[in-house]
Amino acid sequence: MHLAYVVNSFPALSETFVAREVEALRDRGMRVDVYTFTPPSEADLATMSESMRALHREAVPIGAEAPGLSDLPRLPVALRSNARFDHASRPLGRLGKAFALARRLRQSPPDRLHAHWPYATMVTHLASVLTGVPYSVSIHAHEVAHENGHFEEAFGRLDFASFCNGAAMEYLLGRLPASARDKSHLVYHGVETDRFEPLPMPAYATPFRVVSAGRLTKTKGFDRLVRAVALARQRGADVELAILGRGDEEATIRSVAAETGVSEVVDLPGWVSHDEVPTWIGRSHVFALPASVGFHDGLPNVVLEAMASGRPVVLSPLPAASEAVTPGVEGEILQSEDDVDGLADVLVALAADPERVAEMGRAARARVVRDHDAGRQVECLQSLHTREAQAGA
């Protein structure tokens, strides 16, 4: 089968799951071409692995073009669809990109199109209208809380939509016509459980180490995590913290660490490559992320990677937290995102109970292998593409 993936930028450091998905489908014998609108920044390219840079070189850039003669028969339908999309998201630009994408698709016709993210979905929808190539989409957690004027229009044409967690799927389906449910499928991003293997737990003679990761944004709650570490230390636990990532909130996080007197035990190493993440997880006893409750973070991949590595996780009550964690089994789920006191109590309790941490770590690994293995998730996605291709044959 020949697939054409359409994404905003490829590969993106904060969206490595898309690159892994493309590679996994290719490993299963599918031809996957990638079309993209915006190249990664030079800074991002400089920090990518060679395999990621190779993916970037293979991607086909798409700019805006004028319509061609082949577009004219379906142009009125495309114009009506485009008018129903959000006018704040560059309507003329996305129409021009749809013309350009349609031209490439006619030159190398795929069996199917698949889009990630709203802007790419709208362009793909329009290109599908212009060419007749069927399409599907992946819908991510934070998209569902932001109306781009495209969901209802897209669901009228697409074959299927895969959702990265059940909470996001149910939230969006509550706002769409009932017919959308038949096209909706739960396909987690998944974790490469053969790559993220169980790691030995550090000795408890060392400080109790907490690790977290993500873009340093306000929604991640890293300032709350620093305050919780400070409280835990005041309560007698020798806790240290490493936060992997970079972003606009770094100065704020450092300021909170200084204010609470824990600068010496809070490490902010900056951006860490995906290949280095297991090393940092291996140095830790537990992963924690008190992120804002909403669909900014439904179920971050790094949470599942820590669990696959045999680490308990402590989370705020994220929309999809319960899809990976049963409190007291694979980790803990806080009462609220602002429950700094409760987070500190959890860290103190875990720091004092190595047997419980080890047991939770084993349970976390087992849960991910059972429910979130990347291989099984890609098989599910492949089967959806195959089913739709056979139905349309």
Results as ranks from 00 to 15, higher is better:
residue 2 H to T: 06
residue 22 V to R: 08
residue 27 D to S: 08
residue 38 T to V: 15
residue 43 A to H: 09
residue 44 D to V: 05
residue 51 S to P: 00
residue 58 E to P: 02
residue 59 A to V: 03
residue 59 A to W: 05
residue 69 L to T: 13
residue 71 D to G: 11
residue 73 P to F: 01
residue 73 P to W: 02
residue 76 P to C: 02
residue 77 V to M: 07
residue 83 A to M: 00
residue 89 S to R: 15
residue 89 S to P: 00
residue 90 R to E: 12
residue 91 P to Q: 11
residue 97 K to D: 04
residue 99 F to N: 01
residue 99 F to T: 04
residue 104 R to P: 03
residue 109 P to K: 06
residue 110 P to E: 03
residue 110 P to K: 02
residue 115 A to Q: 04
residue 120 A to T: 10
residue 123 V to F: 07
residue 124 T to D: 01
residue 124 T to E: 04
residue 127 A to H: 04
residue 129 V to W: 00
residue 131 T to K: 09
residue 133 V to P: 05
residue 138 S to F: 00
residue 142 H to W: 11
residue 143 E to G: 00
residue 146 H to N: 06
residue 152 E to V: 09
residue 153 E to Q: 10
residue 157 R to S: 07
residue 158 L to I: 11
residue 164 C to D: 14
residue 168 A to V: 14
residue 174 G to A: 05
residue 181 R to C: 03
residue 183 K to H: 02
residue 184 S to V: 08
residue 186 L to C: 10
residue 187 V to T: 12
residue 190 G to H: 02
residue 190 G to A: 12
residue 193 T to S: 03
residue 196 F to H: 09
residue 196 F to S: 10
residue 198 P to I: 12
residue 199 L to H: 06
residue 202 P to K: 01
residue 204 Y to R: 13
residue 216 L to K: 13
residue 219 T to V: 15
residue 220 K to M: 06
residue 221 G to D: 04
residue 221 G to E: 06
residue 223 D to L: 05
residue 224 R to A: 13
residue 226 V to M: 12
residue 228 A to M: 02
residue 233 R to L: 04
residue 233 R to W: 01
residue 233 R to A: 00
residue 234 Q to G: 13
residue 234 Q to A: 13
residue 238 D to Q: 11
residue 242 A to F: 02
residue 250 E to K: 15
residue 254 R to L: 07
residue 255 S to Y: 00
residue 257 A to V: 04
residue 260 T to G: 08
residue 265 V to T: 15
residue 270 G to D: 03
residue 270 G to W: 11
residue 270 G to K: 10
residue 271 W to L: 03
residue 273 S to A: 15
residue 281 I to K: 06
residue 282 G to W: 01
residue 284 S to V: 04
residue 288 A to Y: 05
residue 289 L to H: 09
residue 295 F to Q: 12
residue 297 D to V: 01
residue 301 N to T: 15
residue 305 E to G: 05
residue 307 M to V: 09
residue 315 L to I: 01
residue 315 L to Y: 03
residue 316 S to R: 05
residue 320 A to N: 07
residue 326 T to G: 04
residue 344 A to M: 09
residue 346 V to E: 13
residue 346 V to W: 10
residue 355 E to N: 08
residue 360 M to G: 06
residue 360 M to Y: 11
residue 360 M to D: 06
residue 363 A to V: 03
residue 366 A to Q: 09
residue 376 R to D: 14
residue 377 Q to C: 14
residue 381 L to R: 09
residue 386 T to I: 13
residue 392 G to A: 14
residue 393 A to F: 03
